[in-house]
Design a binder for these strands. Structure first.
Lengths: 144, 144
DNA sequence: ACCGTCATTGACAATGAGTATCATTCTCAT
DNA sequence: ATGAGAATGATACTCATTGTCAATGACGGT
């Protein structure tokens, strides 16, 4: 039933480039980088490779309102993220921290959680330390 | 500095229609309903009204991968939702259930959560009871 | 109640992320 | 090495969302 997944240069290079980026990157960004670095790669290929990785569990989508969909490399077990709104870096959030919430929801609402898009946005330790006063970083007044 | 927000029929009717829907609805859906119900209303107006409501805190975006962005009316205090993937209905999730997670993240990662897009997808009590066996509901094979 | 200002509206054009298509290229089981 | 068919890449396409701008209507001042 499953397709015989072939290991192509493109799939490999997309995975490698995504893994190198410590922050979430968009398909377009990846495309630009790869075209610059090795020329000739279709945008559609990037999307397909990313989709395959998400399906595999080796990457995850990060969707922020007003931002393009971005992707992060991750280990299959950790599917939740802490996204720093200042430096754009992404940390994994362990499943265990999340489990009590799921249980509480089930107990109190009778709601059986199937999938959670749990992305927490805020200021990471590093950025927090770097900006002692108030302003976390660039204003980054998004509009869209 | 702030614009003098005017109370127009359109803003009112959009808010009312959104409030009536017990499930998340897209801008397009709202547009269709309003055109059918009272004719002549611009799609852009719907988007603007929804954006205003989100800014106010009286509505919230629900974004699911592979689905169009949808909106739910909500009280300003509760910004997290339980979205039933079977009946599309949306329940509010109380802030208190969520607080321990925020604390844990801060304690363990030194990460100060600023905003969380916390939408939990799953099967609500009602749908769960209605489908004792396996299949939760219609396949709803979306694409895009 | 009337007026004038200016935010809001609605129709339509424009944008742009993401997807479908399809001839060509490349993987991999044999 | 070879053939089947999966993956690629160029491009056309879709369609949700936003920009534009003349016309409309809300509301403070009178």
């Amino acid at each position: 039933m499953a397709s015989p997944r072939r290991l192509t240069k493109q799939q490999t290079v997309v995975a490698a480039t995504l893994a190198l980026a410590s922050r979430a990157v968009s398909a377009q960004e990846l495309h630009e980088r790869l075209v610059a670095k090795r020329g000739r790669i279709g945008l559609a290929t990037i999307y397909r490779a990313l989709e395959a990785q998400v399906a595999e569990g080796t990457a995850s989508r990060v969707e922020r309102t007003g931002h393009v969909t971005a992707y992060v490399a991750c280990v299959p077990e950790h599917h939740h993220h802490l996204v720093c709104t200042s430096c754009q870096r992404v940390e994994d959030l362990s499943e265990v921290a999340f489990a009590p919430l799921i249980r509480a929801v089930r107990r109190r609402h009778g709601f059986q959680v199937d999938h959670a898009a749990l992305d927490l946005y805020g200021i990471c330790q590093t950025c927090h330390d770097a900006h002692p006063a108030g302003r976390p970083g660039a204003p980054s007044s998004h509009r869209r």
